[in-house]
């Protein structure tokens, strides 16, 4: 008598795309405790969904106090970089099925920046480094009456570094940055690279001088953590090395 019922249940579970996944989230709330703790949430989710969908499910259905940043939720705004299973990724670009849902999925804030609450960190030092490399077009002389034209080859030169979305996944994966926040970090160097190698820009020399400093490109240890972490696939370490080469060839 029990057999047909079991069969039915099995058939149903085979048809359902949902699996049970454990999210192990690093929680920190300064209004309750000065300790950060791991908290487990078990949710049913389609493995083809993303980690961000899992976080939404937890926030909307289980615990509304879970705090994290996200804006566009489609890998463009760069708000939801976090450390998922020990690697910096965008929660909105990481599919559950790609990160072994058999085991608990750990979600932590990115490292090297002050944790304010749960997965939210203080991005100010990161943006300060970005501002310090002057990430804007600088030119001399009169403004032209039409666009500043550029050949496709000149545009290609810095194409890779235009893709940066300032999510801080690279900078917060850098061991030098973890130990010393004075280091500009990969993201700032990538955004300096974008203007240094732009044929229309005329302040490349100034930016090179900034990155030639004690906390500039020479502190890079080429560990390639940044290239591994970049959700946009920018060859970050290569960009840093190109700035180093420009600094050396400028002298000799």
């Amino acid at each position: 008598m029990a057999t047909p019922v079991l069969d039915k249940v099995e058939a149903e579970s085979a048809a359902s795309p949902y699996i049970t996944v454990t999210f192990r989230i690093r929680r920190f709330n300064p209004e309750i405790s000065d300790e950060a703790i791991w908290e487990d949430f078990r949710i049913d989710i389609d493995p083809k969904e993303r980690v961000l969908d899992g976080l939404h499910k937890i926030k909307w259905d289980l615990d509304g106090s879970l705090t994290f940043r996200r804006s566009c939720a489609h890998g463009i705004c760069g708000s939801d970089a976090m450390r998922i299973n020990g690697k910096n990724r965008l929660a909105c670009k990481t599919l559950i099925k790609d990160i072994n849902p058999e085991k608990p999925i750990t979600v932590e804030p990115i490292k090297g920046l002050t944790v304010l609450k749960d997965l939210v960190v203080d991005m100010e030092p990161f943006f300060q480094a970005y501002r310090d490399v002057m990430p804007f077009l600088i030119t001399e002389g009169n403004e032209p009456t039409r666009e500043r034209l550029q050949s496709p080859e000149d545009r290609e030169r810095f194409d890779d570094t235009t893709k940066c979305i300032l999510c801080a996944a690279c900078t917060s994966s850098c061991p030098v940055f973890w130990n010393d926040g004075q280091y500009f970090g990969p993201a700032a160097i990538v955004n300096a690279h974008r203007f240094i190698f732009d044929s229309r820009d005329e302040a490349g020399e100034q930016r090179l001088e900034i990155l030639n400093d004690r906390d500039g490109v020479w502190r890079c240890r080429t560990t390639f953590n940044c290239t591994d972490a970049c959700p946009r696939g920018i060859e970050v370490t290569k960009a840093i090395q190109e700035v180093k080469r420009a600094l050396i060839t400028r002298r000799f």
């Binding site: 300064p30 209004e31 309750i32 405790s33 000065d34 090297g112 920046l113 002050t114 944790v115 304010l116 203080d122 100010e124 030092p125 300060q128 480094a129 310090d132 973890w178 130990n179 010393d180 926040g181 004075q182 001088e209 900034i210 030639n212 400093d213 004690r214 500039g216």
Partner: peptide, 19 residues
């Protein structure tokens, strides 16, 4: 609120300009 843990030697507006 509890004190947050500051990052070591973080960059601020007062960070000296390049030499």
């Amino acid at each position: 609120p509890a004190p947050v843990i500051e990052a070591p030697r973080k960059r601020t507006k007062k960070t000296p300009k390049a030499t």
